[in-house]
Design a protein around this nucleic acid. Structure first.
Lengths: 123, 123
DNA sequence: CGCATATTTCGACTACTATCAAACTATGAA
DNA sequence: TTCATAGTTTGATAGTAGTCGAAATATGCG
């Protein structure tokens, strides 16, 4: 990942409302959520939400598909993984001081599902 | 780490000039670099740099100390680690799709120095 | 078609962010 | 104390980002 798109992703997440949207979509998993449902849950006007979803989408952090009258948004896990990969490798030069404390988190996540992830080619 | 400070850190890094400053300070290591040296290397006017260093400092990503007439800036590795920890745990709920592809990077970093990091209490 | 629903786009407004020259403050050396 | 150096603060300005009501667009249903 290059700096420019990394900055776009960082800006997209550096906003309380958008961060909440992204967190909600991560929780929603692969099924995602329709825009209206997101607006209802987070209590934001549809037009504001639409602007923010558009920003997240341009940053590549979320994807969308139409389903009938609804537009379903999903979090793009690969994009997030690439962003964190950028922060670790390019930004922090793989510095052990940054990386080492994080292995605990990764080990915890890896124990649940390591097979499927090994086949992903994200970073 | 809570969302508010995480957003402050994300905003701080979501800027080409500041991201370059942070990368430079990571490369400089624990010795850090004086403000003037940073300005010279990145070819930015001192007042602009000062404003950006101030923002990074308020986000907790860099620290500073005076040494004679110079003010030396250093990257705060712990803060960066906490930020990435937030993105992995709170934001992505430790999702394997995000975490798994990153273990390669961490393993690469861990092989160099795992002892010293184990004593850090950052996340 | 005609109508209701889901979402986006437009437009106007406000508020914040970035930049940088010039003035100011702090430190060290003569 | 006086001068030079290192850096910050101030202030003016330009540009950008965020918000949200109202209008427009897309879809499905009867």
């Amino acid at each position: 990942m290059k700096p420019k798109p990394a900055i776009a992703s960082l800006s997209a997440l550096a906003h309380e409302g958008r961060l909440e949207v992204f967190r909600l979509l991560i929780k929603a998993g692969a099924d995602g959520l329709p825009a209206g449902e997101i607006a209802r849950r987070l209590e934001v006007p549809p037009s504001s939400l639409s602007a923010n979803l558009n920003l997240l989408s341009h940053a590549g952090l979320v994807q969308s598909r139409r389903e009938g009258r609804s537009i379903i948004y999903t979090a793009d896990y690969g994009a997030m993984s690439r962003l964190i990969g950028f922060l670790l490798e390019d930004c922090c030069a793989g510095s052990p001081e940054v990386c080492a404390p994080l292995s605990v988190i990764l080990d915890r996540a890896a124990c649940c599902a390591s097979e499927e992830a090994a086949t992903l080619e994200t970073v």
